[in-house]
């Protein structure tokens, strides 16, 4: 044995108090900008909104003479005869637009455009983006031109009259049809883009395997493509539910709530910011908006739990391997 002094055990690394503090603080510092933005633009508005919803703040009280009224606005909502109608209109609007366009049409367009030549598919999808790119006022004007009352209107003048069919004031006659068409043609492009990229990233071997295994085109979509798109499907369902719940500008421009199309978000807007009697009921409108926030939170939680959204987000987007 040599006599060289070797320590029997390694000396534990000393971590100074300063180091420990730095390790604790520096991640916080990195998170600060995002944290500030989140708090300033997501949490604070909700808290302010909730605060306003507990007052009778309106243009007749002004910013000085308002009173705290507790949950009176919420009680009013429950008692209001319009509540049920507008809630049904909202559910109708969200679910029909979602099913037929934001998911249904988006899937159809994505599937069609990935089964034709690449260039044609690209052009086809680009066309579907036009409604989203067009300023909404112009876009709705065009729809109004299509449905305008006779002797005007593209439908009346150029389709129905030449065929000798009876004309109508179409937007007023079929308000729901127009509400869902106008919103659907805008909304479909979002899902279309997500679904197209999902379909195109399915490895080619699966497509070959499906054909060799005996699938026709429909069976390949049904048994191979759709099951591999679970994540993008759920994502689009969730995201579009939430954005439809709060959207109202196209309905506002098209029918302004006439014909039973007063959805919840439009109702809140009308009461708070565009009141017929000129009294902007900010407190009541805030309470209406809070209900929407609550519905959104509940829907998100349900989607996340029920569809195991968290687990899906962590998995690869395409469950290839």
């Amino acid at each position: 044995m040599t006599t060289t002094a070797v320590p029997a055990e390694p000396v534990p690394m000393r971590v100074s108090y300063r180091d420990r503090l730095r390790r604790l603080v520096s991640p916080m510092l990195f998170m600060t900008p995002a944290g500030v933005l989140t708090v300033a633009f997501f949490f604070l508005p909700v808290i302010i909104l909730f605060g306003i919803s507990l007052t009778n703040l309106s243009s007749s009280t002004g910013f000085k003479n308002y009173e705290w009224v507790g949950f009176e606005n919420y009680v009013k909502i429950v008692q209001n005869p319009l509540t049920k109608l507008n809630l049904i209109a909202t559910i109708k609007y969200v679910s029909l637009t979602l099913v037929f366009f934001n998911i249904g049409m988006a899937l159809v367009v994505a599937l069609l455009s990935t089964h034709i030549s690449r260039r044609a598919g690209f052009v086809y999808r680009a066309l579907w983006l036009l409604p989203r790119l067009t300023p909404s006022v112009v876009y709705i004007m065009m729809w109004k031109f299509i449905g305008a009352d006779s002797p005007y209107g593209i439908m009346n003048q150029h389709v129905l009259e030449p065929l000798g069919l009876s004309t109508a004031n179409w937007v007023a006659a079929r308000p729901w049809l127009f509400v869902i068409l106008t919103n659907g043609f805008i909304g479909a492009s979002f899902g279309m883009i997500i679904f197209t990229s999902a379909i195109e990233s399915i490895p080619r071997d699966y497509m070959i395997a499906a054909q060799v295994d005996g699938c026709n085109a429909w069976q390949r979509i049904r048994h191979v493509i759709l099951p591999m798109m679970r994540w993008p499907l759920l994502f689009v369902v969730t995201y579009q539910t939430l954005s439809l719940l709060t959207s109202f500008e196209q309905i506002y421009l098209l029918t302004d709530g006439a014909g039973g199309t007063e959805v919840w978000a439009l109702w809140a807007y009308h009461r708070a910011l565009n009141n017929y009697w000129g009294n902007f009921q900010w407190g009541f409108g805030a309470a209406l908006a809070m209900v929407l926030v609550a519905i959104g939170i509940v829907a998100s939680v349900v989607y996340m739990r029920f569809f195991q959204f968290n687990a899906l987000v962590q998995e690869p987007k395409i469950e290839a391997m």
Partner: peptide
């Protein structure tokens, strides 16, 4: 009436 085996296996994950 062919059977095919791939490098990537191509088993349907679902």
């Amino acid at each position: 009436k062919i059977g095919m085996v791939f490098q990537s296996y191509a088993l349907y994950p679902h």
